[in-house]
Design a protein around this nucleic acid. Sequence first.
DNA 1: AATTAATATATGTTTAAACATATATTTCAG
DNA 2: CTGAAATATATGTTTAAACATATATTAATT
Lengths: 149, 149
Amino acid sequence: MKIEEEIKQTTFKNAYQKVVVNLIYTSGWLQGRQQEFFKPFRITSSQFNILRILRGQHPNKISGVEIKSRMLDKNSDIPRLLDRLIKKNLISKSPCPKDKRAADIIITEEGLHVLSQIDSQLDESQKTLIKLSKDEALQLSELLDKFRG
Amino acid sequence: MKIEEEIKQTTFKNAYQKVVVNLIYTSGWLQGRQQEFFKPFRITSSQFNILRILRGQHPNKISGVEIKSRMLDKNSDIPRLLDRLIKKNLISKSPCPKDKRAADIIITEEGLHVLSQIDSQLDESQKTLIKLSKDEALQLSELLDKFRG
DNA sequence: AATTAATATATGTTTAAACATATATTTCAG
DNA sequence: CTGAAATATATGTTTAAACATATATTAATT
């Protein structure tokens, strides 16, 4: 379904207006599906983002700012996102000895376990969701990089 | 800046993973800039979305569901979004005579005025923001349509 | 070394999303 | 023409974003 049909708008002012609308619409569409996907695992996509970052560093501990710099959403409220993950025992936090301001964050075994369960389904889910060939996916990614300049 | 640098991740599992991440990141990037853009006008981008829809129908009145069907974010909480716009005198609402469940929504003169002020800057702002040629913008839009299948 | 600036995190508050449920009205089946 | 289903909106509640500000610590300046 073309974007024109999705939002019942027959014309756009120009190509830029159209691509802006389409990008936001498509991202919302995707995030809706992601939310559905994550629901059985009792986490949100921001929480998944943090877990994935921490697994990438495992078994090293990293700080909140380090997490923030790797987040998809750069405005994330890290302290409270971490609180929620700690409450679920998916990560743990300890004071950093080298810098008393900072915290050492690490993913727990339980966190790794949840991620491994997610992994086994995520790939398949994404490939069936996204109606692009591998080459088209790469091309789209390049255009998005260029979009941001 | 490539997506790999933006989120400090050197590799992706596959092209689909990469494009998903890039799409969400880019959309967040864009929405951040839009938010900045709209701030002086004292509206949010969802509110702008509604105003633009209403202007498209002006001087006809349309219902809440009609607005919803045209929204970028299909999960929008229409009643409360409308409340906020009414409070700012940008739209007005009256009971629909033909269907007593529904409401007739219309944009006010003040709403039209705000939109016209926005228009005069939005085009220019988008064209300088988006680092794509017209053709690339159209190509990106097509790939996004295809992405959703 | 004392002062200032910068950094890492935490917290309070306002605002909006998310989710479920409720109410009124209309439509449709039989 | 009556009751069930569908529709349009409203509202209550929980949860998370957004924004500003505070605190503690480290780094930089003079």
